[in-house]
Nucleic acid binder design. Structure first.
Length: 565
DNA sequence: TTAGGGTTAG
């Protein structure tokens, strides 16, 4: 051990040593562990234990490890595990399970699997806890296919008897990717297993409230209301009552669709059933009102939180702040930003990113940049999302050169391996009259092995159209299908607008026909462009019937569009 | 083993 480390240990050990020596000794380690409520105390105790001779038992070390993990200090816990190893404490299946769990929660599932290898080498049979942790790690890292493979392997090779946690983890992962059908199938498998007369394990694997919450949440997220409500019913048939999280998932789903009245109805139902909405529930509701631009109402909800005995948290403030930013009330947003710090809440990376975007949106680029610096100074590290916001903000303020400089400065890192970054820059370049730069970026991402998505194609096509390069636009449009990325409704609208604006009518009828075949409709801006062209007699009136089919019902009665005949 | 906030096309 080096001098610095030993000094650190002395320094940290100071206070806690006295109190522990007074009250207990290591043979009653359990009660000591129980008294620990924060990371510092835990670390101090560990130091102390590691200096005791003979060394406390593995059980005592593991209890401490478990505690630190429960406090979600995964990286500290892992560090302690390593120290235990170097102290020569013989690690057992419990301590190694905890270490694997920590790796997985830290998005280091790879290391988790390395430790699994250790298990095999030390003849420690991995248990269901270890496999569930690994499965969760894969899910966290969005490696759903590998998770599925592992899960199947567990069952087929009888590596362990999956527990309800294993099933729930897998269901959660499937729902995360919208694989609802498979997720429900897994629920059925659980039920079916439960009906088998002979269970291998002593406890049956019954779906619990977490199982249903994952499923309901997953179904809601993809707008599958009917199935979600059936699931809710089944849950109650199984005598599992929805809890606050279940209801909040419903509230959140409604709010994300702007259906705030429905969301409030759910809140009323949950209150009737004796469940108390918490801060997460109200945060969702605030989001819902912000999305609709109903800021007065959003503010009302915000104010009501305190009256209900709840405390607004960082998310509450960030949500309302975001609402103000999106509705271009930057002064109010700044007010919230200030107020939260006064209340002792620390703006986090999301709060900063939101505020930065708000500044860019009102053209206050200097303020935005200053906030990026402040964010750094406060120890909040800008992430992928912040990066996107900054690039987009620069482009939208005609600072595309700055955005590109930043992009090239960042170079070949993970940040620049995101298709969204390219989409932002290609769009920004195109909108700032640099379609050649856009083209180079497009080629660059392909050379890098990245896959263009439908937005990439759309912004590139839009860039070509803007410059009147309709041939290029059409080529790219045709390439979409063969590249396995079929055009969507936006693609058609972009291309149609390009054709109309450039008075190039050859393909218009064909595009309209394809849109009709695919069940797409025209949006208000494409529609009004069409109306102008028809009114000016530039379009063949034979197209009118087809055109009429593409007008969405909700626009039919729009007074600004009805005098075109 | 479950829930909440910030990024890209029209």
């Amino acid at each position: 051990m080096n001098l610095a480390n030993s000094l650190l240990i002395k320094f940290r050990g100071n206070f806690i040593t006295k109190s522990f020596l007074l009250h207990s000794n290591f043979s009653t380690n359990r009660s000591m562990v129980d008294k620990i409520t924060n990371l510092n105390d835990a670390l101090n105790l560990f130091d102390e234990m590691s200096h005791t001779r003979p060394l406390p038992s593995i059980v005592q070390f593991t209890q401490l490890l478990h505690l630190v993990t429960k406090m979600k200090h995964f990286s500290s816990s892992l560090h302690l595990f390593n120290q235990m190893c170097s102290l020569g404490v013989p690690v057992d299946k419990y301590s190694i399970s905890i270490a694997i769990k920590c790796c997985c929660q830290l998005y280091r599932t790879k290391d988790g699997f390395a430790l699994l290898g250790c298990c095999f080498r030390r003849a420690i049979p991995p248990n269901v806890y270890i496999f569930s942790a690994l499965l969760d790690g894969l899910v966290l890292e969005d490696r759903i296919l590998e998770a599925e493979i592992l899960f199947k392997k567990l069952i087929k090779q009888n590596l362990c008897e999956p527990s309800v946690v294993t099933y729930n983890t897998m269901i959660k992962g499937l729902c995360k990717f919208g694989y609802n059908v498979t997720a429900v199938a897994l629920l059925r498998l659980m039920e079916q297993k439960n009906c088998q007369p002979k269970m291998v394990s002593d406890k049956g694997i019954l779906p619990n409230v977490i199982t249903y919450n994952s499923l309901i949440c997953g179904l809601c997220k993809f707008g599958r209301w009917d199935e979600a409500s059936k699931m809710l019913k089944q849950m109650e048939d199984d005598n599992i009552s929805p809890n606050v999280k279940t209801f909040t998932a419903l509230v959140d789903a409604f709010c994300k669709e702007g259906k705030v009245k429905e969301a409030e109805a759910v809140i009323n139902i949950m209150i009737e059933r004796g469940k108390v909405p918490n801060i997460v529930t109200y945060n969702s509701l605030i989001d819902g009102y912000c999305l609709r631009g109903e800021m007065i109402k959003a503010r009302e909800i915000f104010d009501s939180i305190t009256l209900r005995g709840l405390v607004p948290d960082v998310v509450t403030y960030s949500s309302l702040l975001n609402g103000y930013c999106k509705n271009l009330n930057i002064e109010k947003a700044e007010e919230m930003f200030h107020e939260m710090t006064v209340k002792g809440l620390k703006p986090d990376v999301v709060t900063y990113s939101t505020m930065i975007q708000g500044f860019f949106q009102v053209g206050r680029c200097v303020a935005a940049r200053r906030l990026v610096d402040e964010m750094h100074a406060q120890g909040q590290i800008p992430d992928q999302c912040t990066y996107g916001i900054v690039l987009d903000g620069l482009c939208n303020n005609h600072l595309v050169e700055d955005a590109l400089s930043l992009f090239y400065l960042v170079g070949n890192s993970k940040l620049n391996s995101d298709i969204a970054v390219y989409n932002i820059l290609i769009d920004g370049a195109g909108k700032n009259g640099k379609v050649e730069v856009a083209r180079i970026l497009f080629q660059g991402l392909i050379d890098k092995g990245l896959q263009p998505d439908v937005r990439t194609y759309n912004v590139m096509i839009s860039g070509f159209c803007r410059e009147g390069q309709l041939g290029e636009a059409k080529l790219l449009f045709l390439k979409m299908e063969e590249s396995g990325c079929p055009p969507n409704d936006v693609t058609y609208r972009v291309l149609l607008q390009g054709y109309l604006k450039n008075r190039h009518y050859d393909d218009v009828e064909m595009l309209l026909q394809e849109m009709d075949d695919r069940g797409y409709s025209l949006d208000a801006s494409t529609l009004s462009l069409f109306i102008d062209h028809i009114a000016a007699g530039l379009l063949d009136r034979s197209m009118l019937k087809l055109f009429g089919k593409l007008v969405p019902k909700e626009l039919l009665n729009d007074p600004s569009l009805c005098d075109w005949e």
